[in-house]
Design a binder for these strands. Structure first.
Length: 801
RNA sequence: GCCUCCAUGGCGGAAUUGGUAGACGCGAUAGACUCAAAAUCUAUUUCUAGUAAUAGAGUUCCGGUUCAAGUCCGGAUGGGGGCACCA
C-alpha cells in the first residue's frame, strides 16, 4: 500500500468536509484541547512536537466520536530573541523568516494528519493579534498594574545587548566570551506580586497534577514571618524579614545588599569606603544566581564605623555587605544568627564573628537550624525572659512583644517578584506608551491600536542598549495623545511571554475584530480542558498565563478566574544516544524523513508507544520498525475477514476489555498502554484464523485516533462509511470478566502455586483448594497456620510458622 | 546552592495504586520458508542451578512498616527539569 497516497487522500477528505471545525455555540458539549503553540524556528518541526501533537490529536479524535464539539487549535508563538538573532545573522527581516518558517511547520503538521481547526490559526506577530496584546497592556496600565522601575540587567558591553541569566552563566557572555556586567535599566513592570495570594488560592479551582501545583506554590514562595525595624547607631534604620524570630537574641551581625539603597545612604559615614566600593563593584559582575549559591555565600566586607542595634536587647552589632543578599528582593537586608543558620554560621567562621546560641542543642560544628529544632519541644536559652520557653511559645511571645513595642509586624513574604515586562529588542510587541515632556507617561488611545512594528530593516542592536526601535525616528517621534505636544514613544518591546499568556483565549474566538474574544464565546468553551506542553513551562509560562487571566477576570473581561483546567507535560524525545537532540551532536531525527520512509501513521503510533508520555524517551528506529510491523499485521487481518456482520462470540471479552482500556488510556494520556492493548487484540485476532467484519471494524475504530489514515483506508476498503462519522464504541461491564480466573496461592508471601478456578468462588473453597496443591502442602506440612488472607478473584496467602 | 521529578531485563517500557515483577514492543538465539538474502511465520529469552518439575536471588544502595513492598516510611547515591531577558 502506498502510504503517501493514502495520507494525502484522507487529509484532503477531512479538509474538504470540515471534519475538524469547532463550532462556537454548538449544542454538543464543548471540549477544548490545547497544545502549546510552537515557536516556528528555522529547524522545522521536531519529533518532540510530533509526540505531543499526536497525543492530543488522538484525544481530540476520540472525543469527537464520543459526541463532543472539540476545539483543537494551532497557532504560532513567533516573537522573540531567536528570530531576531536569526534575522541579524542572515540579514533577513524577522517577519520574512517567521513567515517562511510557519509555512514549513504548517506543511509538516498537515503531512502528519493532525486534526487542528486551521480556521482559527494565528501568529502572535499578526497585527490583528498583537493589537489585543497591546490593548490588554493598556488595561494593566490603566488599572495601576504596570509601572516603570529601575532594574539591574545582565549587560555585555561587547555585544551591546542584555543577556538572560543562561546566556550570562558564569559571568561571561555566551556569544563573545567577554565579562558580563550588571547594568541599571528603566523597565516596565507588571505588579504580579499583588496576585501572589490569589494565584495560590486559584490552584484550588484547577485540576493540575499535584506536582504542577507544587511547582506553582514554590515559585510563589509564600512564607509567614516577621518584619522588624533595626535602628542604626547615630541615626537611620532599616528593616529585615525573618521566619525565625525566635532566634532574635542570637543576632551577632546584619548583612545588607551591596546593590541596595541602604549602603549608598550610609556611604558618607562609612570609614572604609574604598573597600566597600570595591566589593560593590565586584558583586555587580555576578548574576543573582551566582550570588545566592550557598557555597559561594561567604564573601563580604564589614561596613566600618557603623553599628546596628538589636531591637530586642539593645546590643550593638556590626553590619556587613554580603552579595548573597539581593538589593531588589525582600528588604535588601537580613539578620544573621550564626548559631541557627548554616550560611550565617559559615559566614561568621569566615569573618571571625561571634556565635551566640539561643536554642538548646549542639552548635559546635554546624548550625542548629529550624528543621532541626521545630516541633520537638526544644527550649530557648540566652534569651532573657523567653529563656526556657519552647521554640513555638517563644516565636509567638517574641512576636507579640516586638509588635507591642511597635518595631515589628507579622507579614507574609512572597518570593514571587513583579514581572519585568520590557525588552530592549526589535522583534516583540511595541509597548503602546508615549513619554510626553509635559504629561509624563501617557497611554496610547485604544482606537489607535495596533501600534505597528515599523517595517524597516534596522533591527541591529544599538550602542547604548536601547531597543533598536530607538533609532527609528519615524517610530519614536509622535504627538502626546493628551496635550498634543511633541512626544516620544516607548521603544522597548514586550517579552515573548506576553503573547503566550492569553492565546488560548483568542482561540475561543479567533476571528473577532471587535474584542480579543467575546464573553459569549469564552462562556461557551468555559476553559481549556487539557493543556499540554513541555515540563520546562509548567512553572513560569503557566503562572504568567494564570496571572494574566486573573487580572482580566478582575476587570470583568473573562468569565472565570482560572481558564485552564488540567495541565499535562510531555517528556522529551531524546536522540538514540539518550541525549537531547541537537545539530552539534548529530542525533537529530527529522519527522519528514520518517513520514516519507515509514508513513505518518507509523511515526504517530511509534511516538505514542515509545514510553510513558510524561517521561523522556530516546529515539529508536528499531522500535519504530516494530510499529510498522504492527500496522502491516492490521492490514493483513483483512485477508482473514469474513462478511459476517456480528462480533465473534469468543472474542467478546478481549474486545470489551480493549474498548475499556483504550478509552481510559486515551483519556488519561496513557498512550503506550493503549497501543499495547491494541497489539494484544490484534494478536488475538491473528490467532483466531477468521474474524468478522464487525470484529475488524472495531479494531480499526479503536486504532483510528492514533493511526487515522490507514484505518480510514482499510475501513473504506471493507465497505464502511468513514470512521470520522462513527460513534466511539462503549464497553459492556458484563462482558469484561471471564468466568474463571487464575488463583495465585502464596505461602508466607511467596508464590507456591497457581490454579484456574471459577470466578466468585467462596473464601472457604479457595482455602481448601489452595491447601490441597502438592507444592503448597510441601511448605505448610508440619507447620502451624497462623492466618489465611484471601484477596477476591486474585490470590490467597497462607501464613505459617 | 534551592525547589522538583525520576531510577525496573541486553534496550524502550508494563504492573488495575500494597496483592503473580518483567505485559506489549525492540534486540538476540534456534527453527520453518528460500538457491540465497530480505520479508514473514514458530519457539526460547531477568539471573543462577537443573533435561524438567522446581528451588534460590532479583525493581540503584542501606534500613523500616506489613501476612504481602517496584509501590508506603526514613536515609544515601545517580540522573532530568526549573531558578525570573532562551521559549
Amino acid at each position: 500500500m502506498n502510504t503517501k497516497e493514502i495520507e494525502i487522500k484522507w487529509q484532503k477528505y477531512w479538509k474538504e468536509n470540515n471534519c475538524f471545525k469547532a463550532i462556537n455555540g454548538s449544542k454538543k458539549p464543548p471540549y477544548y484541547i490545547l497544545v502549546e503553540f510552537p515557536y516556528p524556528s528555522g529547524a522545522g518541526l521536531h519529533v518532540g512536537h510530533v509526540r505531543s501533537y499526536t497525543a492530543q490529536d488522538a484525544k481530540a479524535r476520540m472525543k469527537r466520536l464520543q459526541g463532543y464539539n472539540v476545539l483543537y487549535p494551532m497557532g504560532w508563538d513567533a516573537f522573540g530573541a531567536p528570530a531576531e538573532q536569526y534575522a541579524i545573522k542572515n540579514h533577513i527581516h524577522p517577519k520574512e523568516a517567521v513567515q517562511a518558517n510557519i509555512k514549513t511547520f504548517k506543511g509538516q503538521m498537515e503531512s502528519l494528519g493532525f486534526s487542528f481547526d486551521w480556521d482559527r490559526e494565528f501568529s502572535t506577530t499578526d497585527p490583528d493579534y498583537y493589537k489585543w496584546t497591546q490593548w490588554q497592556f493598556l488595561k494593566f496600565y490603566k488599572h495601576g498594574m504596570a509601572y516603570k522601575a529601575t532594574m539591574p540587567v545582565n549587560w555585555c558591553d561587547t555585544c551591546k545587548t542584555v543577556l538572560s541569566n543562561e546566556d550570562a552563566a558564569g559571568g561571561v557572555c555566551e556569544r563573545c566570551g567577554n565579562p558580563v556586567v550588571q547594568k541599571e535599566k528603566s523597565q516596565w513592570m507588571l505588579k504580579m506580586s499583588e496576585y501572589s495570594e490569589d494565584l495560590l488560592k486559584g490552584l484550588d479551582d484547577t485540576n493540575f497534577a499535584d506536582r504542577v501545583k507544587l511547582g506553582q506554590i514554590n515559585w510563589i514562595g509564600k512564607s509567614s514571618g516577621v518584619e522588624m525595624d533595626v535602628d542604626i547607631v547615630g541615626g537611620g534604620k532599616f528593616s529585615v524579614f525573618t521566619t525565625c524570630i525566635e532566634t532574635v537574641y542570637g543576632i551577632t551581625f546584619f548583612v545588607i545588599a551591596p546593590d541596595g539603597k541602604l549602603v549608598q545612604e550610609l556611604m558618607p559615614r562609612i570609614e572604609n569606603k574604598d573597600e566597600v566600593n570595591k566589593y560593590i563593584e565586584e558583586s555587580s559582575k555576578k548574576s543573582a544566581m551566582d550570588r545566592t549559591e550557598l557555597n559561594k555565600g561567604k564573601t563580604g566586607v564589614e561596613v566600618k564605623g557603623i553599628k546596628a542595634i538589636n531591637p530586642i536587647n539593645g546590643k550593638e552589632v556590626p553590619i556587613f555587605l554580603g552579595d548573597f543578599v539581593l538589593g531588589d528582593y525582600g528588604t535588601g537586608a537580613v539578620m544573621a544568627v550564626p548559631a541557627h543558620d548554616q550560611r550565617d554560621f559559615e559566614y561568621a567562621k569566615e569573618h571571625n564573628l561571634d556565635i551566640v546560641q539561643v536554642i538548646e542543642g549542639d552548635v559546635s560544628t554546624c548550625a542548629l537550624e529550624k528543621h532541626d529544632y521545630l516541633g520537638k519541644g526544644i527550649k530557648l536559652m540566652n534569651s532573657e525572659e523567653f529563656t526556657g520557653m519552647t521554640v513555638e511559645e517563644a516565636k509567638e511571645a517574641i512576636t507579640s512583644k516586638l509588635e507591642k513595642l511597635g518595631i515589628a509586624r507579622r507579614v507574609n513574604n512572597y518570593k514571587m517578584r513583579d514581572w519585568i515586562f520590557s525588552r530592549q529588542r526589535f522583534w516583540g510587541e511595541p509597548i503602546p506608551m508615549i513619554n510626553c515632556p509635559h504629561c509624563g507617561w501617557v497611554p496610547m488611545n485604544e482606537e489607535d491600536l495596533p501600534l505597528l512594528l515599523p517595517d524597516v530593516a534596522e533591527y541591529e542592536p544599538t550602542e547604548n542598549g536601547e531597543s533598536p526601535l530607538a533609532k527609528i525616528e519615524s517610530f519614536v517621534n509622535c504627538k502626546c495623545p493628551k496635550c498634543g505636544a511633541d512626544a516620544k514613544r516607548e521603544t522597548d518591546t514586550m517579552p515573548n511571554w506576553a503573547g503566550s499568556s492569553w492565546y488560548f483565549l483568542r482561540f475561543m474566538d479567533a476571528r473577532n475584530q471587535e474584542e480579543f474574544a467575546s464573553m459569549e464565546a469564552m462562556k461557551y468553551w468555559q476553559h481549556v480542558d487539557w493543556y499540554n506542553g513541555g515540563m520546562e513551562h509548567t512553572a513560569r509560562h503557566l503562572l504568567y498565563a494564570r496571572f494574566w487571566v486573573q487580572f482580566l477576570y478582575n476587570i470583568g473581561l473573562v468569565p472565570h478566574k482560572e481558564m485552564i483546567w488540567t495541565r499535562v507535560s510531555h517528556g522529551m524525545v531524546l536522540g538514540s544516544n539518550n541525549e537531547k537532540m541537537s545539530k552539534s551532536k548529530g542525533n537529530v531525527v527529522n519527522p519528514d524523513d520518517i513520514v516519507n520512509e515509514f508513513g505518518a501513521d507509523t511515526l504517530r503510533l511509534y511516538e505514542m508507544f515509545m514510553g510513558d508520555y510524561e517521561q523522556d524517551a530516546p529515539w529508536s528506529t528499531d522500535s519504530l520498525k516494530g510499529c510498522k510491523r504492527f500496522i502491516d499485521k492490521v492490514i493483513k487481518l483483512k485477508d482473514i475477514m469474513t462478511s459476517d456482520d456480528n462480533y465473534s462470540k469468543d472474542l467478546e471479552i478481549i474486545q470489551n476489555q480493549t474498548i475499556k482500556k483504550v478509552t481510559n488510556d486515551l483519556d488519561n494520556m496513557a498512550y503506550n498502554t493503549a497501543v499495547s492493548a491494541l497489539m494484544i487484540l490484534t494478536n488475538k485476532y491473528q490467532e483466531h484464523q477468521t474474524i468478522t467484519k464487525k470484529d475488524y471494524t472495531l479494531l480499526l475504530t479503536l486504532l483510528n485516533p492514533i493511526a487515522p489514515h490507514i484505518t480510514e483506508e482499510l475501513n473504506e476498503m471493507i465497505g464502511n462509511t468513514p470512521i470520522v462519522n462513527f460513534t466511539w464504541p462503549k464497553h459492556d461491564d458484563n462482558k469484561i470478566v471471564d468466568n474463571t480466573f487464575t488463583l495465585v496461592v502464596q505461602v508466607n508471601g511467596k508464590v507456591r502455586g497457581k490454579i484456574e478456578v471459577e470466578t466468585g468462588i467462596s473464601q472457604e473453597e479457595i482455602e481448601t483448594i489452595a491447601k490441597d496443591l502438592d507444592n503448597v502442602k510441601k511448605f505448610i506440612e508440619g507447620k502451624e497456620i497462623v492466618k489465611t488472607i484471601v484477596v477476591a478473584n486474585k490470590l490467597v496467602n497462607i501464613v505459617v510458622r
